[in-house]
Design a protein around this nucleic acid. Sequence first.
RNA 1: GCGGAUAUGGCGGAACUGGUAGACGCAACAGACUUAAAAUCUGUUGGGACUUGCUCCCGUGCCGGUUCGAUUCCGGCUUUCCGCACCA
Length: 809
Amino acid sequence: MAYSIDVDKKWQKKWADADLYRFDEQNTDKKLYCLEMFSYPSAASLHCGHWYNYGVTDTWARFKRMQGYNVFHPQGFDAFGLPAENYAIKTGTHPQDSTNASIRTMLEQYQQLGGSYDLNYFLSTCDEDYYKWTQWLFLKLYEKGLAYQKEAPVNWCPSCQTVLANEQVIDGHCERCKSEVTQRKMKQWFFKITDYADELLKDIDALDWPEKTKKIQKNWIGKSTGALISFDIDNGMKLQAFTTRADTLYGLSYVVIAPEHEAVARLTTPEQKAAVDAYVTQAAKVAEIDRMSTERERTGVFTGSYAINPVDGKKVPVWVADYVIATYGTGFVMAVPAHDERDFDFATKYGLPITRVIVDKNGKEQPLPFCEHGQLINSAEFTGMTTEEAIPAIVAKLATEGKGELTTMFRLRDWLISRQRYWGAPIPVIHCPHCGVVPVPEEALPVKLPYDVEFRPDGESPLARCAAFMNVTCPKCGKAARRDPDTMDTFVDSSWYFLRFPDNKNKTAAFDSDKINKLLPVDKYVGGQEHATMHLLYARFITKALRDMGYLNFDEPFKSLVHQGMILGPDGQKMSKSKGNTITPDPYIQKMGSDVMRMYLEFAFSYTDGGPWSDTGIEAMARFVKRIEGLFDKYDTLSEAHQDMGAAEKELDFVRNTSVKSITRDVDLFQFNTSIARLMEYLNALVKYMQGPVNKSFLKACLNTYIVLLAPFAPHLSEELWERMGHTESVFKQSWPVVDEGALVRDEITLVVQVNGKVRGKLNVAPETDQETLKQMALALPTVQAFTDGKEIVKTIVVPKKLISLVVK
RNA sequence: GCGGAUAUGGCGGAACUGGUAGACGCAACAGACUUAAAAUCUGUUGGGACUUGCUCCCGUGCCGGUUCGAUUCCGGCUUUCCGCACCA
C-alpha cells in the first residue's frame, strides 16, 4: 500500500510481535550502547526537539545494527522534578498520577516515531525500584565522605521556593523559572564533587566530545595555579590569601577580606566597628540584589587592623570590600593596585598607595594598571627576574618561614543537592537529637515518598509537614527522631541512570558490576548542549566516585557525545507559545507519516546546528517518498530487455557503490543531510536508467540495495517496499551493503587542466594515462593554448586522477 | 571584559588530507500534459561582459600573507551566537 501512517502502524505492530529489537545480553563482544538523554514526562505531545533527538539518533542506531553491532538502545524517563509538582499545585492532580499518565501517552507517541527500542529495559526515576538505588547512591557517597552537610550561603529561588546548585543559576537567575536568585544561609547537603576537580579536568581531553562542550566544562571547573601566602595581622591573627601573582608581592598596598568572611568581626577594631558593621549589613543587602555587575563601583571600609607583608615586613591596612568573593580561594586577597585593575580602581578611590613592581618584557614602564607578565623592579633580590621566574622564587623564600606554598584553586564548588520540594527522592538520613545525623540503614531502603502530602511549597520542604513521614525512631538509639525533610536534586537521579538501564530489574543491587563493566561506557550519547555543566559533569563525577568504591572499572560514562541542534520556529526564532511559532509534529505525522518527518529533520539541517522549520521543506520530503514509490511502480511494469552489463549498467552500478560508500561514512559521522542527498542522487540515477532498456535482474539488485540503504532513514517505508519486492524477512535483518571497489573504477575520468592555478580546460582520459601524455594533451587544448602561447612552462604539477596544473612565465 | 564558535546564491545547506566552489533540496522562471488550475514530468537558474564561446572577468564576511593553486593554512579586523563574568 502507498506510504502513510497506516504503513507505520502495520510495521510497528509486526516489529512488536516479532520482538525485533530485543537486545542480546549474552553477546557483548560487538556491543554498542546508544543512548539519547532521557526525557521528562510531559502531558503535551512530543515536540520537534523530541523527534530531532530520538528519531534521528534511531537512524544511527538502526544503521549500526545493520552493520552487525549488538545495539543496546533503551528508553526511560527522568520523572521526578518541579514541573509535575507545579502542575499539581495549579490543578490539584497529584504529581505521581500526572507523571504516570504522561509516561503512558509519551510511550505511545514514541511508538509512532518507530524507534528501535527494547522496552524490557525501561526505567522511570520516580519508581520505588529506581529511587531506592538513588538513595543507596547517597548512602555510599556519605560513607565515603563525599556527601556532607554544611551551613552556607546558598542560592535561593523565591519562585520555586527551593535552593539551587551553582550550575542551576544562570546570570543570577533560576535556570528553570528565570526568577532572580537570592542568597540565604542554610544547612544543606552537598556532594563533594570538588574532590574530583582535578581528574574531571584532566580526563576531558581524551573524550570524543564536541570541543566546545569540553571547553565549557573546563572553564566551569576553572583551575588556576598560584600560591597561598600567610599574613600575620597586628592583633595576632593569621590569614591566608590565594594569588596567581606572587611576583607582585613587593607592590602590596593593602589586603582585603570579603564581608561574609567569619574573620571580619575579629579583625575589626573597636573604633571601626560601627563603620564595618554598617558596611557588612549593607553588603549583605547588595548581594541579594545585584553583586554580579562588574560595572558597579567598588566600595569598602578599613577594619582598623594591619597585616604584615611577609616579604618585607611592611604594614598594610586590612580592608573589607565586597569585590572579594567569599566562596572562592580563601575569601581574603592581597591587593596590588599597580598590577590589578580592581585593586587599581579601589586604591584610586580610597587614596591607597600604588607601587609599580613590574615593567614589560623589554624593561619599559607601561601605563598602570599593567596586568600582563613582565619583569620585576623594586623587589629586593628578585629585581630583574621575569614574572615566571619570580613566582616560584618568592614562594620558595616564603616557604622557608612556613608562609607560602604553591597551590591550585578551582572555580568548581561542591554540588548542593538538597531541595525543599516534594516530588523527588527523599534524602535517606535521620536526624536524632542524641546521635546526630544517622544514615538510614541500607536494608530499610527505600525511604518511600508518601503519597498524601500537602505539597504547596512555602520555603520548607512539604515533607516536613507530614508527621507520618517525619517521625521515626533512630536506627541507632531507638529514640524518637526525625527524617530529613528535603528531597534530592533531580540531577542526582540522572547522574547514574545509564548504569541502571542494562540491569533495570535488579532487586538486590543498583546494578551488577560485571554486567555494567561489559556494557559501558555509553558508546554514543546524544542530547542537548545545555547540560554541559550540569548533567554531563555530575554523571562524570558519580561514575568516578563509584569506580573508586570498586563498583565500576571505567573512568568515564560517555565515550562519545553528540549535541543535536535546535529546531526553530518558521520565523527563525526559538519556538515558544508566547511567540505563537510552535510547530507540533503530530498533525504532520498524521498526514504524511513518521518517515517523512524523520527524513525531513535529517535532510533539512546539519544535525548539530538545527535551524528553522519549513513547511515547504517537509512537503518536499513527502514528494521524495512519492518518487521512491513511483520508481517501484514503474519497475513492476518493466520487462527484461537484455542481460548485459553495458555502459548504462556500469554507470548505475557506479552510483550505487558511491552511494553505499558515502552514506556509510556520513551516517557514522551523524551527517544525515548528505546521506539523504546521496539517496536522492541514487534515486535520480535509477529513474534515468529505467528510461532505457533494462537488465531487469541487475535492476532488481540495485533496487534491493536502495531499500537497504533507505531502511535506517525510513524504517516503515523500507519494510513495505522490501515486502513488495517479495522478501518475507524484515529488511533490518539484512546486513549493511559493502562497497564493490571494482565498480568505482571508471574507464574514463575527467581531469582538470589548470594554467597558473586557473581552470582552463578538461580532459577525458583513461585513468592510467602517463604524465607526459597528459601534458601533451593538455597543451593541445585550444583554451589552454590561449594562455600558454609564447610562454615558458616552468613547472607541471599532476595530482593523480584529479588535475594537471601548468605553471607558465 | 575574557574565552570559544560562526560567516558560502533568493533560502536550507554541500565541498574527503590545500586541487573543477555552490552537491542535494527549496523557491523562481520557461516548456510539456490539461478547456483551465493543481499535481506530475522536462529544462534553466551566483553576478557581470561581449565577439553567445564547453568564451572571458568577478565571486565563499573584510584587509593582507603563504602557495602553481586557498571556502580550506597564517596574521589582523568585523558580524552573529554561545560560555564565563569582580575567580585575585
